[in-house]
Design a protein around this nucleic acid. Structure first.
Lengths: 346, 346
DNA sequence: TTGTATGCGTTATCAT
DNA sequence: ATGATAACGCATACAA
């Protein structure tokens, strides 16, 4: 092969020289600032074309103090729920001509490290945090660094937060089961592998309890199992619940993945769904549709889009830090599908 | 709330001043270069701590000409296949202390635009390209810009490429169907929504043809359907194939998602799988396991890890552009599960 | 309308 | 061992 010429990339200086103008003028052309003679502009444009010049974005960030990219901190980004939210984020961001750096977190230490270091590195203009709860100290750090932050599926009093009404979603799901005649309802509660600060699962538990008390009943503690949010966790929980004496006739899981795990175990135990067992999940990922799983649908895409838009807003308005943080509530939506049935007469 | 002090972030100058040293010394401490008296180092370190100073990475990139982040160009990143590869990328990258910017592409124009602009913007140190084929001109651009590129699940003679032996995978899948007695085998070929440059599907078709010719037979054209890579496409194709007279007894799809679509249609048509219809997919995504779908497993995670490692290598060695591009072959692996059965006696 | 000069926060190359 | 200073590529305030 012929040798490759790897000339240094042309700079604004080169353009200026070739066009017989000063760098200032080229800069003005680039940012189409007013006050440059059409003829000159034309000439500069031609040279730019000819030299195949493109501004160095890093250098530009030096003066503009904007990088054009935002950081997204997310646990286990390949999980369908997060993946769907990210999709929404991506849509809103590309529309706003921004890019995003993905900071995947798999352990508490990693999360803490990101919260600590990222605000001060100046690599991003703002941060989107998914399902993770920064501490007061972390928040103070963000503010000191002047770094806008939006929380998605998480909450902090001083940060713009988008939250889904988890309690309400759980309430509806469990009410539905109760109305179908179920009384022994297993509840699979999510803990997280990394031991992050979550509390969604507890809200969902409260929703369940409210449903029971609405019906003048109380939920029995022995039907609550704490496991991880994934299929594996669901399988463990289901194995425990379904092989115990006086097994539940229905199971409500705090994630679809867990619910899928339940379905798998039910299959191996030869329990027919929904004849022998009703199941409701949470999230409304695509998989739930395929499996015809009843679930509490979260507005994942919307969560992502809205969160990204709010963040861009904060960045663009240069966010007077006195501004009141917004708290935005979104509603989940119960989706009854194949896996829920009225309880069979014994 | 008390007013928020949003002081400007401290710079290396501030540190120098507070420590009564010159910026050069602070820089030396930061990069632990040799030749700085322990006492001085200590003092500087203390000031850094006290000021909560952290170097501005953008400014650092100015001189170092390295950003510490790489760009990943990927179509439809939420699809399980890409998502899994990305997971591998993330693992290798965080290990190498790099970050990645996700460039999601959904149309040919977007892809072309990324190929054109990204190399010259200096926002990333290198690029990872998934399942997309840059043109010769694009490649020339990369080289001119001195931007290392690694192709994953794609190939270009002048670029380090990781490819899976698609033909072999398809061959094994179809051979298995043939050995199970199937003769009328539907083939669902993938086209892509965005009209990118793909050719994987054709390789898979070749594998199918080779299997047939190995058995001294030929595959009939009317059993080939071209649809998109997703569930939707699979459903369309299945509907077409399964409602035609003399329907196939088995279907081989070029993606698991398509195969899932086939299963869905089979269910609505009251065709039992595998009694009435055998199905094999391609990719080996988690969903295939849940659905007990037979499939050709691709080394997705490995693809991501290896690709990222190769790219980091290129970046670190500052890649003398004369270097021979590597071509790395990975093998897929046939996974026979519930959805394949010997053909039933009519 | 256009040119010049300064600054952005580092690193690196000189001196000292 | 450390200090002073020139790049790095661009934007911008100020001059002309």
């Amino acid at each position: 092969m012929h040798y490759l010429k790897q000339e240094k990339a042309p700079t604004i200086q080169d353009v200026a020289r070739h066009a017989n103008v000063a760098v200032g003028t080229v800069s003005r052309v680039l940012n189409d600032s007013p006050g440059v003679k059409p003829a000159t502009r034309q000439r500069v444009l031609e040279v730019i074309q000819q030299l195949d010049y493109s501004p160095n974005l890093i250098a530009r960030s030096m003066t503009s103090r904007r990088t054009g990219s935002i950081g997204v901190i997310v646990p286990f980004f390949t999980r369908p729920f997060f993946s769907e939210v990210l999709r929404g984020v991506e849509v809103a961001l590309t529309q706003a001509r921004h890019e995003f750096i993905l900071y995947n977190v798999q352990s508490n230490e990693q999360c803490v490290a990101y919260f600590r270091t990222l605000p001060k590195q100046h690599k991003v203009d703002g941060m989107l945090v998914l399902s993770l709860y920064p501490s007061d100290e972390d928040v103070a750090n963000f503010q000191r660094a002047g770094m806008p932050v939006v929380l998605i599926d998480a909450f902090h009093p001083q940060l713009t937060s988008l939250v889904v009404n988890n309690a309400e979603g759980a309430f509806q799901a469990v009410m539905s089961l109760l109305e179908h005649g179920h009384r022994r309802i297993g509840f699979i509660n999510g803990i997280t592998e990394g031991n992050f600060h979550f509390n969604r699962a507890n809200e969902r538990y409260k929703g369940l309890q409210r449903a029971f008390s609405t019906m003048g009943m109380t939920h029995e503690d022995d039907l609550v199992v704490n496991v991880t949010w994934d299929r594996q966790g669901g399988r463990q929980a289901a194995m425990h619940l379904l092989t115990s004496p006086n097994r539940p006739t229905a199971i409500f899981a705090t994630s679809d993945l867990q619910a899928i795990g339940v379905l798998e175990v039910a299959r191996t135990l030869n329990l027919a769904v929904p004849a022998d067992l009703s199941v409701i999940g949470f999230d409304g990922i695509e998989l739930s549709e395929i499996m015809e799983l009843s679930t509490v649908q979260q507005p994942m895409h919307h969560l992502g889009v809205l969160g990204a838009q709010k963040l861009i807003e904060l960045i663009d308005t240069h966010e007077p830090l006195t501004a009141q943080p917004e708290l935005i509530h979104l509603q989940p939506n119960l989706l009854l599908r194949r896996t829920v049935n009225a309880i069979q007469p014994q």
